[in-house]
Simulated assay, not measured.
Amino acid sequence: MASSTISSVTATMDHSTMTMPMPASTDGSMSFHTSIFDFLFSRVWTPSSRGQYAGTCIFLIVLGVIYRMTYVFKHRTERYLNARARQLARNIATAHFKMDVNAGSFQKSTGEATIEPERPLQFRNVRPWRVSMDIPLSLIQLVLSGVAYLLMLAVMTFNVGYFLSVLGGIFLGELLFGRFTSNIEGD
């Protein structure tokens, strides 16, 4: 088990001295440890008691749940926006045709519907870029990535409590919200 004391490494770069605290290890490599005094994200957030350490672990559990919840929210929003775009495309396509109720068939209306020939370099089954769809999805992905990177930084402290809290939060989030990403309707 690695020692939980902190040593300093001093580096000289361009005539300036910078001191960086490094976790001390008996063999010189990073390893998991159980110290309750590891900072999280900045030196300001350093637990100084078991209660503060427990609060930090609870925060990481909540952050893991938020990560899974955001993932589900992105998935559901994407499904909703794609369904809305398909409905809009159907409405536009049927606006050019009127139904003859007696014959039970469609007839072309006076408006001209044009179909462009398929371009060989285009991807098939790729929806066109739309501000109303792509900006909200990109913003959700921004939040999702930010939370994921914060969770990654917590794990990179090599603190066993932080690591288990992140895993517990992701498990709890999947347990609570995972069923909302299932594909029951065949969509």
Results as ranks from 00 to 15, higher is better:
2 A>Q: 12
4 S>Y: 06
11 A>T: 09
16 S>F: 15
21 P>M: 05
21 P>L: 05
24 A>P: 09
27 D>L: 08
31 S>T: 12
35 S>G: 11
38 D>S: 01
42 S>T: 03
45 W>H: 02
45 W>G: 06
45 W>P: 00
48 S>L: 00
54 A>L: 02
59 F>H: 03
68 R>E: 05
68 R>G: 02
76 R>D: 15
78 E>T: 05
83 A>F: 02
85 A>V: 03
87 Q>R: 11
91 N>H: 13
96 H>R: 14
97 F>I: 09
97 F>L: 10
98 K>Y: 15
102 N>P: 14
109 S>V: 04
112 E>I: 14
113 A>T: 12
115 I>L: 13
115 I>H: 13
115 I>F: 11
117 P>C: 09
120 P>V: 13
122 Q>V: 08
128 P>S: 07
128 P>K: 06
129 W>M: 13
137 L>M: 15
138 S>P: 08
139 L>S: 10
140 I>L: 01
144 L>G: 06
146 G>L: 13
147 V>G: 00
149 Y>W: 13
150 L>I: 02
151 L>W: 02
156 M>K: 05
158 F>W: 04
160 V>Q: 09
160 V>W: 10
169 G>R: 01
172 L>T: 02
172 L>A: 02
174 E>W: 11
176 L>R: 08
177 F>W: 11
178 G>M: 03
183 N>Q: 15
184 I>A: 07
